[in-house]
Simulated assay, not measured.
Amino acid sequence: MIQDNRAEVRRVLLITLLLNIVVMILKALVGWTTGSLSLQADALHSFTDGANNVLGLVTNRLSSPEPDRDHPYGHQKYEAIGALGIAAFLGIACFEILTSAIERIITGIKEVRITSTELWVLLIVLGINIFVAFYERSVGRRLGSRILIADASHTMSDIWVTITVLVGLVGIWQAQIWELPQLLWLDVILAFPVAFLVFRSAWKVLTDNLPWLVDHMAIAPESIHYIVTQVPGVINCHAIASRGVIGRQVFIEMHLIVDVKDVETAHEITEAVERELEKKFAPVRVLIHVEPPDYRYDAISF
C-alpha cells in the first residue's frame, strides 16, 4: 500500500526552518561583533540549513507517492533530488569557508574579541542544533523520508562544527585573559576542520541518495528468491529485479514458474507471493510474469 507522509514531513520542515533561522541570526550577530572567521563560516553553514528546509518544502510538494498518467511510478524521486540540492549547498559552503581562511592567512590575522555572554549564546545555539538534528532524524527514519534524513545529517554536521568553533573561541577568550596573541590563530586554523566536516556531510548525503536516483538494486535477488520459493505452488523464479528504497517504496519484477495449469490458481499463487513480499519489504509494488511448470530457460540461475 502506498503511504503519503508529506503532511507530517512538511510540518517537521517548517518547525526546523524557524529554529534554523534563529540559529543563523544568532551566529551571524556573534560572528560579526567578535570578528571570528570560524563563527562567520559556521553562520554560513547554518544559512544552508535554512535553505535546505525551503528546498525540502518545495520538493515535498512535488514528491507525491501516488502515480498519475505522466508518472506511473509516483513522484518520490523529487525528494532524492532535493537531497542532492542539499549536497550542492554544502559544497558551496565548504568552498566559501576555505577561501576565507586562505585569504586571512595571506592578509594576516585579525583580532577576535569574545566575551562570556557571547559564549553562552553559542551554547544555546548548540542546544537548538542538537534538538533539531535528533528530532528530524527520528521522524525521518520513522517515515522513511530521504529529505528529513539528509537534512538531519546536515544539521548533525552543524553540531560538530559549532562545537569545534566553540572550543576555538573559548581558547581565544582565554588568550585575551592570559595575553597570548598566538592563540588568535585558532580562529583561522579551526576553519579548516569546519570545512572538512561540511564536505564530509555533503559526501554522505550524495552517496545516500544517488542509488535511489540511478535505480540501484534495492534487495538482493537471492533474498527475494528465498521468500518466493517458500510459497506453496511456486517451483522457481528468475529474472528478478528490484529498485527503490526499503521502507519508502520498492518495485520488484520477476518471472515466476508455478506448478499449476489453470490461470485462476496461478493468480492465487501470485497474490500469495505479493503478500509475502509486502510483509517483508512494505510498501512494495510487484510485477510478476507467470510461466508454466515445464518452462526451461538458460538464464535461470537459481
Rank of each mutant, 00 (worst) to 15 (best):
I2A: 10
Q3A: 15
Q3N: 13
D4C: 12
D4M: 07
R6C: 08
R6Q: 09
R6I: 06
A7R: 10
E8V: 09
R10G: 09
V12F: 02
L13D: 02
L17S: 07
N20S: 15
V22R: 04
M24S: 09
I25A: 08
I25P: 00
L29Y: 07
G31L: 01
W32I: 10
T34C: 10
G35P: 05
G35W: 04
L37H: 07
Q40M: 13
D42W: 02
D42M: 05
A43E: 01
A43T: 01
A43W: 00
L44Q: 06
S46W: 02
F47A: 07
A51M: 07
N53K: 01
V54A: 13
L55E: 00
L55G: 15
L55H: 03
L55W: 02
L55Y: 03
N60G: 14
L62W: 13
S63I: 10
S63R: 05
P67T: 10
D68C: 13
D70C: 12
P72N: 13
K77D: 08
Y78E: 12
E79F: 11
G82V: 05
I86D: 01
A87Q: 02
A88E: 04
G91M: 14
I92L: 14
C94K: 06
I97L: 13
L98A: 15
T99L: 14
A101R: 03
E103T: 14
E103Y: 10
R104S: 10
I106G: 07
T107K: 15
G108L: 07
I109T: 10
S116D: 08
L119R: 03
L119M: 10
L122N: 03
I124H: 03
I124C: 11
V125I: 05
G127N: 06
V132C: 06
A133K: 00
V139R: 06
V139G: 00
R141F: 13
D151P: 00
A152W: 01
A152Q: 04
S153M: 09
H154D: 03
M156Q: 13
D158V: 04
D158H: 04
I163R: 10
T164Y: 03
T164Q: 05
G168H: 05
W173I: 07
Q174P: 04
I177T: 15
I177Q: 15
E179W: 08
L183F: 14
L184T: 06
L186M: 13
D187S: 10
V188N: 08
L190N: 08
F192Q: 08
V194H: 06
L197I: 13
R200D: 03
W203E: 06
K204N: 13
L206M: 14
L206N: 04
D208Q: 12
L210T: 14
L210V: 15
W212G: 05
V214G: 09
D215V: 12
A218S: 15
A220F: 11
A220L: 11
H225V: 06
I227D: 04
I227N: 04
N236Q: 11
A241H: 14
R243E: 09
G244C: 08
G247K: 02
I252K: 01
I252F: 05
E253D: 15
V258W: 02
K261E: 12
V263L: 14
V263T: 09
V263S: 09
I269D: 00
V273R: 00
V273W: 01
R275C: 09
L277P: 05
L277M: 03
L277D: 00
K280P: 00
A282N: 10
P283K: 12
V290P: 10
P292M: 12
P292N: 08
D294K: 06
D294T: 07
A299Y: 14
